[in-house]
Structure formats: C-alpha cells, structure tokens
Simulated assay, not measured.
Amino acid sequence: MKHLVRIMMAAGLLAVAACSAQADTPPKDLKATLTKKLGRPVDAVNSTPVKGIYEVVMGKRQIIYTDAKGDYAFVGEMIDVAKKESITEKRIAALMTTDFAKLPLADAVKIVRGDGSRKLAVFTDPDCPFCKRLEQQSLVGIDNVTIYNFLMPLPGLHPDAVRKSAMIWCSKDQSASWRNWFFEGKLPDNSPECDNPVQRNMTLGESLGISGTPALIFANGQIVSGAIPREQIETLLGAK
C-alpha cells in the first residue's frame, strides 16, 4: 500500500473536524479504486460526517478512512469532539453483529440457569485467562439465562487448548466438566478422541470476525469482545 499514511485521528485533523461539515456521497468508483490500490477486497465505502473523507470497511469489521481519490488512507479513530465519543468505535460495534438464530447451537456446551429464558453465546478458549475471569467473575450471579459455550481454542497462543477443548466436549457430562475446569482447574478423566466440533467452532469464529476470546454474542446479534463486567452483560441481555 504505497500511499498508506498511518495517523492517530484522535489527535489529528479528522478528530478536530469531525461533524464540522455535512456528509457527502462517496464517488461511485472509489470502492473499485481502493480495491485495486490496496490489493485487498473492500466490503463497503460509506460517507462520514467530514466532507471529502470516507469510511472504508474491509475484512467485514476493519475500518480505515480515505480521501475522494483513494490516494491516502488514514488508520485510527474518528472522534466527534462535541459529543466526546468515537465515531469509529460506534461503527465497529454496529458491524459486529450476526444472526443469533443461525448459530449452530448443537456445537456448544449448553448451560441453563434458572428458567433459561435469556440467551447468550460465548466463544472461549479453556486456557485463556480472560475466559476464566469471565466465568469466575462476570457471569457469576447472572440467572435465568441459557449460555451456549463454543469451545474455540487459539492454538497459536495456547498449544494445549485444542486437546483440553476436545476432552471437555467428549466427557459424559459436558456442563459439569466445563464448571470443573473453569472453577477447579480439573479436566475430565477421558480421551479427547471423539467426534467433536472444535475445528468447526474455530472456523465459525473466524467467519464471524472473532479473533480473540472471550467473545460474547447476545440474542440481538451483537458481538462483544472481552471479559466485560457483569452489569454490562445484564444490560446487553435485555437489549433489543
């Protein structure tokens, strides 16, 4: 990318100018121009609150910005100074969605609490410390929810996570094995050799743009990364 210029827009020109001009429609050929110049597929080109600057969506959820000719690309955050909020962050959150009803829930370890009326899917790695924090802190006390835990090991970070994921899945009591591992550090006494969805879950996570764990998917389709606080989970469980 010959013309790629990296700046932090929170401290730069775009941050200062955000919402200072009316948005305009991107040039019709800008998407094709950027695809050729960047050498990468461009999913969409959208207007921004800054005249002459356009949002470029790549890889489904990566956002950069460009000028009208596609000569320069800006990497960073666009800030609405008056509102003191990140336009980029809000747009990424809006892009991080999926259809909950289409998730292959049969490939997840199902845990029902209370009446199980609320729904939550969690992509997790058994060796991820943040996944353990989510289990041991954030999810504690949350009731009346059905949690679908998709075992998605990250072998590049945790080489033994694939084996542990398979062992939990292959156990006679998956939910008990899940709790024993995340709260007691005890794996089930069984082989990891069985028909399991671990590889499918890894592929699914990648297709959803999930590159780290934990990642939570709420019933409205919103995807949120990280061991977020219990209060935020409760709010999102009720979101429409």
Rank of each mutant, 00 (worst) to 15 (best):
V81L: 13
G221E: 06
G59M: 08
K37E: 06
V42M: 01
V50G: 00
P192H: 10
G156D: 07
C170K: 01
G59S: 10
L154V: 13
A215W: 00
L14G: 08
A161K: 00
S177C: 03
R230A: 15
P27M: 09
E89N: 15
E85W: 07
H158K: 06
I53C: 02
T88Q: 01
Q62T: 14
E206K: 14
A108Q: 01
T25C: 08
G116P: 02
K69D: 13
V45D: 01
N180G: 08
I210Y: 03
A82N: 11
K2A: 15
T25M: 11
I7V: 13
D71S: 12
G212S: 15
K83T: 06
R200I: 03
V162T: 13
L236V: 04
V112K: 11
P104L: 11
D195V: 15
F218C: 05
D127N: 14
N144M: 08
C19K: 10
A101H: 10
E89D: 15
I63N: 02
F150P: 01
H158E: 04
A15K: 02
A73H: 08
A239S: 15
G59L: 05
Q174H: 11
V224T: 07
S207P: 05
V81Y: 13
F183K: 10
Q174A: 12
I64M: 07
E193T: 13
A166K: 14
E193Y: 11
V109W: 00
Y72K: 11
V56I: 08
G116N: 02
N201M: 09
N190I: 09
G114W: 02
K2M: 10
L4G: 12
L95G: 03
G209D: 06
M8T: 13
A121V: 10
E231M: 05
V75H: 12
V145S: 03
A15H: 12
S86I: 04
E89K: 15
N220Q: 09
K132I: 10
P229H: 05
P153G: 04
L237V: 05
V224P: 02
Y54D: 02
I210V: 15
I92H: 05
K28N: 13
C194V: 11
T203H: 13
V56Q: 00
C194I: 09
P192L: 08
H3V: 09
K51R: 14
A21N: 14
L30I: 08
P49N: 06
P129Y: 03
P188G: 04
V162N: 01
T25F: 08
A239P: 01
A219T: 04
M1P: 14
L134S: 07
V56F: 00
T98H: 07
G156Q: 11
A176Q: 14
C194N: 13
D173H: 09
I53E: 00
K83N: 12
G59E: 14
A18Q: 02
G114F: 01
G212H: 05
